[in-house]
Each structure stands twice: as structure tokens, then as C-alpha cells.
Design a protein around this nucleic acid. Sequence first.
DNA 1: AGCACGCCGACT
DNA 2: GTCGGCGTGCTC
Length: 736
Amino acid sequence: MNKLYLEIALPVPLRRTFDYLTNFQGDPNGLIGCRVQAPFGNQTLIGIIIGVKAQSETPADKMKDIHTIIDDTPLISHLDLQLFSWAANYYHHSLGEVLHASIPQKLRQGERQEHEQLISAWKHTPEGMGLPETALNRSKKQQEIHRYLLQNTQFTRSTAQRLGFSTSAIKALKDKNLIEEILVKDSIEQVQTNNSLLNNTPLTLNQEQTAAQESVIFHRFGAYLLDGVTGSGKTEVYLQLVARALQAGTQALVLIPEIGLSPQTVGRFKDRFSVEIAELHSSINEAKRAEHWQAAKSGRAKIVIGTRLAALAALNKPGIIIVDEEHDLSYKQHDGFRYSARDICVYRAKQHNIPVVLGSATPSLETLNNAITGRYQHLKLTQRASTATPPHIESIDIRNQQLTAGLCESAIEEIRHTLQRQQQALVFLNRRGFAPSLFCHHCGWQAKCTGCELPMTFHSHPRHLHCHRCDRQNGVPRACPSCKNQAFSHRGSGTEQIELFLAKQFPNTPVIRIDRDTTSSKKAMQKLLEPAYAGTPCILVGTQMLAKGHHIPGINLAVIADADQGLMSADYRGVEQVGQLVTQVAGRAGRASSTGKVLIQTHQPDHPLMRVLIAEGYNSFAVQLLAERKHSGLPPYGYSALIRSESKRPENALAILQLIHGAIKNTGNKHTITTIGPMAAPIEKIGNRFRFQYQLFCNSRKELHATLKAVLSEVEVKAEARRTRWSVDIDPVTSA
DNA sequence: AGCACGCCGACT
DNA sequence: GTCGGCGTGCTC
Ligand SMILES: [Zn+2]
Ligand SMILES: [Zn+2]
């Protein structure tokens, strides 16, 4: 008899697989995609069978036998295995870890698939089987069960419940040794399929929406950019596209950003459709997540909706993929397997030969470029449904201006006017706390985090110092540690300071602060925003989370307190992100009755790109930014990779990057790959760990990847690779 | 990554 | 004496 070898991908950070022996008898092709339990070193791991073969390169003395094959039917389909192999290769990450990331925790830990789960059931003993139908007529209930078993051989607890078999009757039969308990596979009871897919009637689309909706062709690959301003009705287009997928008997996968509008968006899908919807995101508990994942895999769930992790979910028969707010940074995973959920979706659409729709009011430059070059079809929605006119955007030169709590006099005046008109104002600042630095008024000593060597943020309520990089928290010293003086002073401003200042300035108006410190729970945010939704005059102060989602109709003024953070950022994507932010915030300002206003406080009122943004809008801004990127060979005109390294000892963090740098310079590709570094990371030290980075750019994606692959496999076996925590980030979205 | 093994300093 | 720090090697 020939031996059978299994190639297994294990959840270890090694960019390779391992071969095992098995005594499995049967069709070996049915094994691919099944989980196994395997000995590894002196631990036992759960891995996925990715190949079956008759021989192995592995020497016999190292070869081990698999412990068990967990699945009877594959957990991962052939097509998904192909997807994840591509992704592991593209992101230069361990296939085992990629597969691990794609399945819910319960299944990672070896729990059986729901359709293979063993549940208890009752069947006749030989004695019971021999009993005539007419027996047991002293107990109607027992006779009923007996007759049922003569017809159906067995029943499960849920069947018993449905048919009204009481536990006492069952126990009586068991005591008479007429029936016995056995374990059987749980055949999921088919949920009766509702013949209507919709709960409520679709809204009527306007001409643009109709044109966009009809442009999407099903049963064929195509990527579409649905480019629509806030309030132009993208969601209704999504809903009707999903309806078309369902009518065709296929599933729809819908991705939404991590924060903000998620509950609202999910709600709209639930309201519209009567089919089973599988939600996959971080606030779903593990048990539910496993259940929903399997509902998506089996096809029981017709709509799968979730954050980036949903992009990896198994699907039975997808018919369309929708990525809402496709520019959102939360689609990129920031540790471990650093995938872009949006890019994964495009790949999957290609695999399944189906459309993928990327929606945004502020498309990422990559997507916009794909639309301009014709790789993606550009669908535009330009009409705002309710608001008559787009808001008026203005930048305020704050050079040489006196700022109070980070706001200049004219911004404060505008807020005052807005409130006088019984309208609402929003102040956006991407900085929590009271002030980003605290120092001694006497000698200049500054409160710094000992782990990061950077100023700690001063919070006034509760009063403490907080390092936003490593999360260290300290009390505020009573006296200066350096000169013992007790007078402290602060520099810069955060949301807390703006809130307190505005509350003092406008004592009769509620000031609502929305940031991580005030919205520990989702409900807290909803509660805080209640008066805002009610429409009473108020001021909202907040960070990121306020800019995303949450359309509050009464807001008529939006102040962006500090646009310079992004404009002056060392990262070339800073400007792009400011443009997206301004446009998003602008989308929040203005309502049907009066034109809204957006004020941008900046030290660079003449920034040419910002002028374009203000005068001509996001699209012109983005097109011009694209021209700049093209000129300097930056993404999306070139491809980039970022290798990060951090260690308690700076020389160890640096060593691996220098090794990689040397290896790159030694390859023949050195003239087409340009590099920056190795150099200190933008934040040089976090929590006592020194951080370095090395950036690679190349105008050929293929060449970049081939070089990286060769260099990584050369370098990862060296001792230097073990003395630091390092990672490869493909298509990074930030260099921080 | 996780785990064992081995070698050196500093403790009851 | 041995407890435990981490540098190194290995995982089919
Ligand atoms: Zn001092
Ligand atoms: Zn810190």
C-alpha cells in the first residue's frame, strides 16, 4: 500500500508548510481544506491540509504522523485556498497564519463544523424494534414515540420538542430498555425559505442612481467605483444591487468601515431584506461569529455584512461584493497578516467572476486611478438628495492669530452666529485630552513618557497624564520634579480643552464631546448624541469618530481646528487624508433650509492643493494629487513595501534592516528599486522599544515582489532576524 | 511564535 | 549550591 503524505499549513510565523504522514483510506482529494491536529515540536497544533502527495522531500527520520483529521468535509474550499495562497504570497506572510486569520476562533480551536457536530438522539433498542405498533397502549405518549420510531428510526431533542415528546415519556421508554441514546450528526434543519426577499419596498431611484445601478453587470467580473457625494444615496444603490444578487440566487458580501455608520448601515439592510443576514465584526461574540461564518459558508445567510475581517469569510455562492467607504483606512489590517480587505475583495470578485462595487465620496487615489485608466468603471452620483446646495468651504489663516483653546476669534464668532440662528456647530480636532504637553512654568521641565521619550498628554478629567503611544498613565506631579516649583503650564489643545472652553463661552448651550474617552460603549455615543439628533442648538466637539458616519441633520457649521497635522506630515499620504477628512466633514454640514459652512484653520492657507480642494472639490484635488504622485513615482504609480523593526536594543532593530538593505543592493534589481533607509521610524521609541523602518519603491509590482521574496527567504534564517520584532507591510497606508 | 536546552550571574 | 535571565536551534 502506498503511503500518503499531507502538506499542512500551520499557524506559525514561518513562510513554509510541513509534511506529515497519514493512514487515511479513501479519496485523498476530499482531504484538501480539512483541518488536522498535528504534533509540532512538542506541542499539538491545528493546521489545514493544502496538498496530498505520494512522496515527500522530508527525510523519514523527521516525518511524523498526523494525530487526527478533524473535518469530514473541507472547511476551506479549493477556491478560497487559492485566494489565501495568493494573499500569503502577496503579503509575504505565513500561509498557516493567513488561513488562521480567516476562520473564527472556535473553529481554529478545533470545534467541529456545525453540520458535522454530534448531538444526542434516541433510537429503538432491538427489543423496542421488535415491539408491535399496537403495544404500549396504556400510555398514549409512549406509544406515539414508539410508532414514530417504527417509521423514522430516530429523533433528536429538537424533533422531540417539535412533536411534543415529553422527557418523562422518553425516560420511561429508556427505563424499559426499549429506546437508547446515540450520537448523530446534526443535520441543520432547513429554515423554511421565505419566497419574498424584501421586508419593505425599495425607494425610487433618481436617474443617476438608476444609471449606476443598471451599469453593474452580474455574472461577470467587473470593478466599479461608485463615486457619490454624502447624501447622494449610495446605500439605496447598494440595497438594490444586493436585491438583484439575491434574485439570481446568489449571496452578497458587504463591507463597512470599523466605526461610525456601521450600526445604521447594517440596520438598513436588516430593514429591507427578509433573508438571513450574517454579521461579522468585532462586537459579535465568538460563538455568534462561528455561527455566522458557517451560515455564510453554507449559503444559509444570503447577505454577509461586516468589517474587514468579513472579506476573508467563506462564501457559498457570492453574486456581488460591495465595499462601502472604500478609502477607509480600517480596511487595512495593521498587524500580523497586513491585508487590505478592499484589495482582497477585488481579487475574490475576479475569482468568482462577479462584480465588485467600491463606494466612496472621497475615493482613494489607487481606486480613482483605476477608474481613470478604465480598469474600473466610474459611476458618479452628483445629486444630493435633500440639501439644496453644497456647503461653503473657507480656510482661515491662523498665522499670528491669538488662539483660545485652539480656536481663533473668527471661528468662535461663527459658532456664536450659528447658535444664535438656532443651529448646530461641530468642531473637529483629531487630538484627545486637554493639551498635548504639560511643562513647568518656571524651568521648562516637560512631562515625558519614560518609555517613549515624548510628551505626555495632559487630561483634566480625570486629571492625569496619558501617553497616547504606549498607553502609560501617570498622575500629575504636585511640584516640578526638576525645580520643585508648583506652577505648571500647558501647550497646544485637545478636545477636552475645546469642550471646556466652549461650555464656558456658551453657558446656555450643550457642548457634547465625542471621542474615545467619552464613548467607551456604543450606547454611550448614541446617548450623548440624542440632543444633537433632536435638533436643539448645541456644539459637538470630537475626533475621527465624529467625522465618520453619524449624519446629524441640524449641523450647519463645521470647524476643522487643525488641518496642519496632515498637511505638514512627513508621510506623503497626509495631504490625501486631509482632503478626504475635509470633504467628509463638509458632508456633515448644511441642510435643506440653509447653506452650511466649513472653516479650516491652518498655517498654510496658500497650500496649492487645499486651494484646489476648496475651489473645485475633491475630484479636482485628487486628480492633481495623482499628477504629483506620478511625477515622483509614488503609489499608485509605483508600488511600495515597508519593513518595520522594533527592539529594546536599537542595534538589534537596525541590524535586520541593514541586512535586508545589503541583500537588496546585491540583487540585480537595484536600479529599479529605490529605497529609503534604514532609518528611525516617525515615532522612534514606543514603550521602551526602539523602532526603525526601511521603505522600498518600485514601478514594477512583479519585480518588487520577486526581489522581496528572494531577500526575505535569505534573511529570515539569519540570527539577526531573531533578535528583533520585524514585519513586512505591502502597500502600507501609513509609515507610522 | 513557542518551546527546550545551555550557559552565566546572583541569590535563599 | 540552584533559580532564572536570554541567546540559539528547531519545528515535518
Ligand atoms: Zn521646574
Ligand atoms: Zn509612552
